[in-house]
Write a protein that binds this DNA or RNA. Structure first.
Lengths: 338, 338
DNA sequence: ACCGGGATCACAAACGATTGCAAGCCTGTC
DNA sequence: GACAGGCTTGCAATCGTTTGTGATCCCGGT
């Protein structure tokens, strides 16, 4: 189909090697020849075949990215950050979705590994051992996950949850629930731990409920359990679940934030669109993506790109309409343990 | 890093070509040798390098998919359909997002073209000429778009809009607005045309407003213009815009559906989560994706896969809470033209 | 004993690019 | 006028795999 380097060479009256050098901008080829080659290449619409080039150079110029679920609005945010930064650096990004399936994640990772220069795994559901094994075979960067010494970008979940608890405590909440996400999620464990620590510090009673699917339906499913747990506020594993909680609360006639306050996590676009707007622990999605690519670049030995192998980005508590003062009549009915 | 075919050949005491044939299951190599090669390959953890193989066979075993905006909840639905069907057929899918930029779309398409066996373009923003040119260079399937004889899967926009208008007319609406999407969008043109035709048939007055960005903000921006257009109902280019409309209507004190009815398009997950739940023209997102891959497979000459080069899938009107009877006091104030 | 022929396998040429090395030309200086 | 040396350019090997073609071996038939 497309023109090959030989066609260009013939058209320009030079050898293929000269074409290669001219197009690569090598200084050893004369300006006149370079121009002639450029013109010939443009005339034929020639573009170097990336797979042929990749075969000899060992680099493909593209990055692989794997996410658990593109339908979860959190991930497109990260993807966009990755794509934007990668584009700036001349890399193309191949995204794959695993439907939250660890097995599929492993297969996709191995499949992608040979076709990309590096792999960016966002919130991987894989076990730590598998992650470490994978890191041995391919340049790997983790997003929202730590595993041994594998380069990673994470968000300050501990700080975020601490601020959320402080916010709720200041509003008079003495007992708050946690609608936890999937057990295989590292972020979930992090957030739960942060919440536990912060609650203990602030003298707040924490009821851990879960783990639910990190979806709207998961939030809906959690809502009734939350209402029965005798809490005046609930922190959801993520915004999508929080939205599910709010929806079910409305159906049950439990006013938000009158009867119960809701705090989400991530700050997805829908959080501010909802009514009431969702108070949430904002995670810098795009920045995580960009930082991940920066890390990849430094790992790949790019000039001008370097930094620590693991970075933690700040989170932010965005106080919006879904949190308010604890109802005066509210008092714990029973203690829930897990 | 990984073992090459030569390593396996040496280990098995045969030539590389025999290894290739043995692993491919060719009948010309003896069962004994095949077994020996198999064992050697397994021992070395050998896996054929896909890029080297791709160089000579011309097939890579992966599909490229390009979407305008992954953050628009419509697209992940289609992506999931594509990935699911592709996976069944043994193909991997590389997804790229163009941020609604036609220029970027063209560049990404050309970049991907050489690394995949076929390209699936979802709602491409490219001009028809560029699309046709691209179709000449690579196996191409269009989703939500027609361009000449390029194989394509679309939804029955005309039928959907007709049902929407019939629904609104039955509710007593005599004048409805259209909050149009981007002018570069083929679906937008299709839906506008369908709406025009259906409105004319039903004796409904149509006010075409637009084109807005197909985003929540676009819907918000359209809302005030819609309210000023003297309509009792509005059909939005898509659900995301419809959500923006509803949000701004609420802020302006215009009750939905009391003062104004809203119809969306696509049936994204958020449509049913919103309050009121969104009446919408449901587009079968996953099915479009799957059908697109089926088309690719038949184009690639896969056995057992074939069908017409263009297919139109059914749409469905989902009546939910955002549409209701026209207010009795409502009457046109002025006619808007475009 | 010789030969035809099927069954196996090895050799080598691709695929399209990059890159070390050698060869060519030109110019300047002795 | 010859030679040294710098600047350009071409040759050929290479990346890891597939695949057409030819070589080898062995067996049975005549």
């Amino acid at each position: 189909m497309g023109a090959t380097i030989r066609d260009v060479a013939r058209a320009a009256g030079v050898s293929p090697s000269t074409v290669s050098r001219a197009l690569a901008g090598s200084a050893v080829v004369s300006p006149a020849t370079t121009e002639r080659v450029r013109r010939a290449a443009a005339g034929l619409g020639y573009e170097p075949n990336p797979v042929a080039r990749g075969l000899i150079t060992g680099r493909t110029g593209n990055l692989g990215m794997i996410v658990p679920d593109l339908a979860n609005p959190f991930f497109p945010g990260v993807v966009k950050g990755v794509q934007a930064r990668a584009r700036e650096a001349g890399y193309a990004v191949f995204v794959a979705d695993t439907d939250e399936d660890p097995l599929l994640e492993a297969r996709l990772a191995r499949r992608l590994a040979r076709q990309v220069d590096a792999l960016v795994l966002c919130s991987p559901r894989l076990s730590e051992e598998e992650l470490l094994a994978l890191a041995g075979d391919v340049t790997l960067v983790l997003l929202n996950r730590r595993a041994g010494a594998v380069p990673a970008i994470t968000a300050d979940n501990a700080g975020g949850t601490r601020r959320a608890i402080a916010h709720l405590a200041a509003l008079g909440h003495r007992r708050v629930g946690l609608a936890a996400g999937p057990a295989t999620s590292w972020s979930n464990a992090e957030r739960a731990a942060g919440l536990r620590a912060a609650a203990a510090e602030s003298g707040v009673d924490l009821a851990e409920l879960g783990g639910y699917a990190p979806t709207f339906e998961g939030g809906v499913a959690a809502a009734d359990v939350v209402l029965a747990a005798g809490v005046s506020a609930v922190v959801a594993y993520n915004d999508v679940m929080a939205l599910g909680l709010v929806s079910r609360f409305a159906a049950r006639g439990a006013a938000v934030p009158g009867r119960i306050s809701v705090v989400g996590c991530d700050d997805i676009p829908q959080a501010v669109m909802a009514t009431p707007a969702l108070t949430t622990i904002a995670v810098p999605k795009e920045r995580i993506g960009r930082a991940g690519v920066d890390l990849v670049l430094s790992l790949l030995g790019h000039p001008g790109a370097s930094g620590p192998p693991v970075r933690e980005l700040d989170t932010q508590l965005l106080v919006r309409g879904s949190t308010g003062p604890a109802a005066a009549t509210e008092r714990p009915r029973k203690r829930a343990h897990q």
